[in-house]
Design a protein around this nucleic acid. Sequence first.
RNA 1: GCUCAGAUGGUGGAACUGGUAGACACGCAGGACUUAAAAUCCUGUUCCCGUAAACGGAGUGCGGGUUCGAUUCCCGCUCUGAGUACCA
Length: 941
Amino acid sequence: MDYQFKDIEKKWQKFWAEHQTFKAEDKSIKPKYYVLDMFPYPSGAGLHVGHPLGYIASDIFARYKRLKGFNVLHPMGYDSFGLPAEQYAIQTGQHPAITTEANIATYRRQLDQIGFSFDWSREVRTSSPDYYKWTQWIFMQLFNSWYNKDADKAESIAKLAEHFEQNGSAGINAVCDDEILSFTADEWKAFDNNSQQAELLKYRLTYLRESTVNWCAALGTVLANDEVKDGFSERGGYPVEQKKMMQWSMRITAYADRLLKGLDTIDWPEPLKEMQRNWIGKSVGALVKFTIYDLRFTNDDLTNLQSLTSNHYIEVFTTRADTIFGTTFLVLAPEHELVASLTTAEQQGDIDAYIAQAKKKSELERMADAKTVSGAFTGSYAVNPVNGEKIQIWIADYVLAGYGTGAVMAVPSGDQRDYLFAKHYNLPIIPIIDIQNIETEADPTKDGRYINSGFINGLTYKEATAAVIAKLEETGAGKAKVNFRMRDAIFGRQRYWGEPVPVYFKDDLPHLIEEKDLPLVLPEVDKYLPTESGEPPLARAAGWTYNGQEYELSTMPGWAGSSWYWYRYMDAHNDKEFASKQAIEYWKDVDLYIGGSEHATGHLLYSRFWNKFLKDMNLVVEEEPFKKLINQGMIQGRSNFVYRLVDELGRGTNTFISYGLIKQYRTSPIHVDVNIVDNDILNLDKFKKFRPDYADADFILENGKYHCGHEVEKMSKSKFNVVNPDDLIARYGADTLRMYEMFLGPLEQSKPWNTNGIEGVFKFLRKFWRLFHNEAWEFSVSDDAPTKAELKSLHKIIHKVEEDVERFSFNTSVSSFMIAVNELTDLKCNKKAILQELVIILSPYAPHICEELWVLLGNEAGTLSYTPYPKFNPAYLVEDEFAYPISINGKTKLNLNMSLSLEADAIEAFVKDSADVQKYLDGKTPKKVIVVKGRIVNIVI
RNA sequence: GCUCAGAUGGUGGAACUGGUAGACACGCAGGACUUAAAAUCCUGUUCCCGUAAACGGAGUGCGGGUUCGAUUCCCGCUCUGAGUACCA
């Protein structure tokens, strides 16, 4: 029979499901291998052709690893809490759980027909109470922990309370809020319970904090920075305002250094690690106190550094302590708390006007305005702690209140912003390094020797930095300090469709509910909107209280459920623990994680954070959750256009001009559905049915065909460039789709989807099928011994695929399979000994056709997935002759067959004697002959 | 602006540590089969000159360099994509 992909694929998908062929074992003498895909949010639109790209790659890898003798865990699930379902609920009143369920069913059907080897017995859904019970449980562990900097790990909050009880706040080195109290043990004991709880909250790893948030009134929610575009919500385009609000936060900053260091231990793409490094933004520098100049100082005081330990100082953060002698003024953020008290009476007007103006500017305007210099003088002065110089104190909006201390020491010779500011306001600029060139702009060099710099004159950058910091620490005017750009992560949103926070309030203080009351199930509400008073939707739930106390009304953010889900797959049905100790000790971590790079600073950072916390709690065994990570590239859409003729009045007509002729007419481009275009040729009949008003369209054609234009854009419905995998599977089958997606190009590269080449892959599979069949399409293989040429073809592909899979180069293996099948077809090979091995090698790529042939070859159904991968024997590839390319001056001219046993001098002699080479030499003696054995001969004339 | 990735035929791409550039596939052209079409099969296909062919020249974004030899290494630039942004 000809290749009947429909029957074959249906048959084997059913077989795998019924026999649970891909169920991973929790105990095994085989080594473990955990292959994970970033689980999808099940959206209403279903999968488009770009989604399965990563899943196909990971599936090939998982299947390959099984053949290589590993116990493979390859699960799938759904990140099923999220905004679209809720948005739909608001519009229609339909419970998001129902929408989500329906969407999941669509996803499952689509995933199943691609033939993935997922262990579906382990499926997880973040919105299911059995799952989010454990998300809530982990939240409780975070609430019950604080970060001990001395131990460099999280510890139980009970231990902290114990310490307070015995020793007071002394001796605690914690990551905590800025405003903590200092107290003795007796004072602590004298606090009432609420005061103690309020103090402990400042240390917890998840805590309440008043923060400025992006509040979108129309959506009734707080948005992440990346969900806000130009002051409007990315989705819906509603206005967003800054609002202060009590918010749950996660103290991810406690882990900043470990998150940074861990990057060096994992095998991730370098650009992705770089993004995380930038996000964490570690800078090593110093905090320096500049005393506020007081008229009571005498000149003697000024030169005596010891006297400058007054409490009236401005603290700045700098990464270039070495440049401190070049400081000629200070700049504070307009929001800085000292601005009011520093402003003198005569400057009051200027300062007030500047602050008012700065407030009016939106974030966007401030950014766009980056080149305009603006600021105002406070009228006050500060004293440089290293040389006693009296310098002016300014405010300017180029200094950000939220970073460092909200104040900078301006070194115009070394920092371009300071330089522009100094030029604009006529402030002094002092060069501090001998090789510095500051005629037209600042020069931030670290080379050269210091000048105009007191005790560091003549030193190098390294020596100077150390000397300055030592001096500052000695005089108490400063200290070395590491600063991070990363902020604590806000953990909550004013939404319905998310995990409820397992917290209730008593006397305005948060308390955890009891563990036995988990999961705290999402209550029913009448509407999915905020209340009239602006409270989150959960406030609508009637009688929803914890023993009469009010629950937290916000829900957890989207990243909560995805920050630990890989552990749940290890033990998906455990109702006693989030995963059993044995399961975690066996599976440990994810060996290979495949997903998009858009999660670089969200999911992948939060997951590493939670993982490190769970490690501190001894709940998991590895410091890093994802050993190796691959980013699959984005599949872009390839849109097609038709060109509508425009009349003299600029109105569109019903005539369409073929792409090659549009220069001769006035036209406007219109998107046309890519599914009615084949190789950029428009199907005219289908076009006429595409929209009613096209029914009697006229065309101006080229050679009887309508050629469409094309452009690469995002794949989206509105651009009519969405290609649905279902259609392709119906036409060519899943095996063809799988191989074609891989054939498209390197996995990591972004590329536009173009269905044009898919025929080639389909033809290949048919040709492969044909190897096992005779002219009459009857299955027919021979038991004869294979020839040398056949064995060579086979072992070439065994080796090639092994190499390619190990380096995730799936596109090149597909080509190699084509070459192998072409060769074997030319050899008319139908030897079982060859073909059976080939079936095994191809099975990770095209599993259905291979299962079918495997059984036709006489093997037991279902054993293919666990059969050993063929062993490569290099002996079959050994050649005894090689057609050496002979080049003259580096240009290849001809090939000469020579035995590979010949040594360099013999080769040289043979080449020189060759009549063909003589022709090129034209009687001249070669200057030099380079012979690389087994590769090339190059003759230099 | 900064960081990262990339640029190879009409198209997707291959060339793994410097050693025959363009594998494999699409498309296109020509041919076979067919009453015809589809399907299938065969041949050709980097560009230029040479009117089929041999042969010659150019050629991996641009300009240099190292080398017997560079798509690959080094220096400078252009363009494209992604991330990030007054981070002191």
